[in-house]
Design a protein around this nucleic acid. Sequence first.
DNA 1: CGGGGTGGTTACCGTTTTGTGCCCACTTAC
DNA 2: GTAAGTGGGCACAAAACGGTAACCACCCCG
Lengths: 114, 114
Amino acid sequence: MTARKTKYLSLAERRAYHSLEDIVGCKWSAGVVASIARGVRRPGELERYIPGISKKILNERLRKLTDYRVIERQEIPDRVKHVEYRLTPTGEKLAHLIEQLQELGQQHLDSLPG
Amino acid sequence: MTARKTKYLSLAERRAYHSLEDIVGCKWSAGVVASIARGVRRPGELERYIPGISKKILNERLRKLTDYRVIERQEIPDRVKHVEYRLTPTGEKLAHLIEQLQELGQQHLDSLPG
DNA sequence: CGGGGTGGTTACCGTTTTGTGCCCACTTAC
DNA sequence: GTAAGTGGGCACAAAACGGTAACCACCCCG
């Protein structure tokens, strides 16, 4: 980050980040993105894959992520309801950043004295 | 993210991210880190630089970030109280990721139809 | 038919998190 | 003395968030 040190953090900057902060920021979101990135695409599958997440929260996140165009929802024709979510290009980049965040967190933890 | 698709998201993975999620995750945190990365080092300065943040939240974040060793607090000898915060190595890496997150968010917003 | 799977919603309630305002001690300038 | 700036704390109200559980419609199998 280049030290610009303008008077304020611009509104645009705050909002730009905010759109992704809303995603990375709330509980489970990063896990959902990371899971989809790993190929877990169906809601029920995600629910089982991410231990502890509730149906409600999972759906809330999926909807939000879809609204942000970070993932895409597609219904697959079948006799049984079949839905799959996949990452959009932005979603993939986001997943990559989340992964780096996870790695950084891990390294950091390992380096702590306590 | 390589598609491993193990049965579950491991606890370690969830926790590793959690340590940084606690930082990136809560409101204002990213802004504080980004601001410090830009050279805004003093509490009062940060308060003015980040429009809308409250004294309380700012202090809470500074304390949390300090606890996590993402930033360091130093009192500078002066007749007047003079405190400065700066990023630790991890903090700089984190700031870099946050910056990328902001950029990605910005690009993404620009690319949206609506 | 009942039981189980799919995907999804809603109401309710408790906990967390934010935000507001007031307070502290200290120093400097007026 | 008074005002304003430094860094910081606390109590409280307001808002956001999460978790539980019930419920919907649909389809399939036995």
